[in-house]
Amino acid sequence: MTSRQKERLTSFLLLLPSIILIGVFVYGFIGWTVYVSMSKWRGMVPDYTFVGLRNYATLFSLHRFRVGVKNNIIFTALFIPSSILLGFFLAFLLDQKVKFEGFFRNVFLFPMALSFVITGTIWAWIFNPQAGLNVLLKKMGLEFLQSGWITDPRVALYSVVIAATWQMSGFTMAMYLAGIRGIPLELREAARVDGATEWQLYQKVIIPLLHPITVSAVVVLGHISLKIFDLIFVMTGGGPAMATDVPGVYMFMATFRQDLFNRGAAIGTIMLLMVAVVIVPYLIYSMRTEVER
């Protein structure tokens, strides 16, 4: 055995445990879930009779599931841009050589250190119509801004988006700040020497250079958003009137409250597909850029 072969063997053996564990506990169970989603399993006795795609057909005929998918799409479409814009704006401000930058950076990043359960509980208090924000608005004489934040089905979804954005914009800020700091100063200087205004500098030089970061942020936020469960479960439980219901919440309810294991598995599979739509192009993209390098 040459030393090179030996090296390969060692690295393979070192990787083997994690390959086996991931193979069984991730891919094995994905396969298992897909299998259950095409079975008749309801109730406490597993029934693996194969029924093809029938569970999926039923699922798409259900009011609750259709509303959930629609809500999740709206949620994602609002949550990703708002987190990215706010995060970029904060990074832009911090980049202006402010005093105590380290302090502010931590302040903005800190929400990310909390779990969604805590964020959800706190924002549910803030949005309680009898307490929190509404009282504050009244004291400030801004009664017309009062709203049934999480009690009014027309605005509840937006309130949840606000809470999620509050949590995740610090993360995009950190990513963008790192990205901005990674851009060589010479490039900025060169642009300035060429007579670019600050606005043009950002528009023509910095933002295009941050493109890979934006892609990563969209992917990270996108998979959080499409799998969202904890924040909504704690904040609104999917209500009022299903206004904030998402497939993640319904998956939990169908599996553990209703004992409809086949339906829960079908919802899980569809969520996986939804996330795959976001992740797979990213993987292809990042593999390509890696090859180019």
């Binding site: 309801r42 009011h63 609750r64 089905p153 209500g239 009022p240 009137a241 299903m242 309810m253 409250r257 209703q258 004992d259 409809l260």
Partner: peptide
């Protein structure tokens, strides 16, 4: 349970709709 849970959901809708 499965129906009780579905009834809960429907009540949540009905109280608004």
């Amino acid at each position: 349970d499965a129906f009780a849970s579905a009834l809960n959901d429907e009540m949540g809708l009905y109280i608004v709709e």
